[in-house]
């Protein structure tokens, strides 16, 4: 069931669009903010509320990189795999993170703490290589500082 809190937030967003479905991405993001990810059940309820079919809303939800249709860890690491970060040594940094966490890109640690995802250029190329953890951006961390940064997310 969508909670009253979720419904209030979604309603506020819907008012900003000429048609109800215009707010569906905001609505998906709202439930994801509250639940971490978007399950089939949640999707079906939301579709009903938005007067869309589950298939329609599902097709939208699977299109966008930052809408999660599978459970993710408590913290999501977005690794910039684009060209400037690649030139500046993201390869080695990523290898270190993968080894440290024991997962590859696209996976979640067994303790549910981190999910590691590749991301489109994060638009901070002067600080390359960069990554984001939740909503925090980190520029040019070396192997030692990245360990300290990761330790800050429990």
């Amino acid at each position: 069931m969508l909670t009253p809190e979720e419904l209030t937030e979604i309603q506020a967003e819907l008012a900003r669009y000429e048609q109800k479905r215009g707010g569906c991405i905001e609505a998906l993001k709202t439930v994801q903010r509250h639940r971490g990810w978007i399950s089939d059940e949640t999707l079906a309820e939301l579709a009903d509320f938005l007067e869309m079919t589950p298939a329609e809303l599902g097709s939208v939800s699977t299109f966008y990189n930052l809408l999660f249709r599978k459970p993710v860890g408590r913290h999501v690491i977005l690794v910039c795999t684009s060209v400037s970060c690649w030139v500046m040594g993201m390869g080695d940094l990523l290898e270190h993170i993968e080894k440290k966490l024991g997962i590859n890109l696209g996976e979640t640690t067994a303790d549910g703490r981190f999910t590691l995802l590749p991301n489109v250029c994060l638009g901070a190329c002067d600080r390359a290589p960069v990554l984001m953890i939740d909503s925090d951006l980190y520029g040019d961390p070396d192997v030692k500082t990245i360990d300290e940064i990761l330790a800050g997310y429990v």
């Binding site: 669009y17 993001k29 299109f63 966008y64 991301n119």
Partner: peptide, 20 residues
């Protein structure tokens, strides 16, 4: 919600309409 193609102006319009 993140996708490079959203920068293309007509794709952006579809995104704003709640579509792929």
């Amino acid at each position: 919600a993140g996708r490079y193609i959203c920068g293309e102006e007509t794709a952006l319009l579809n995104a704003l309409e709640g579509r792929r």
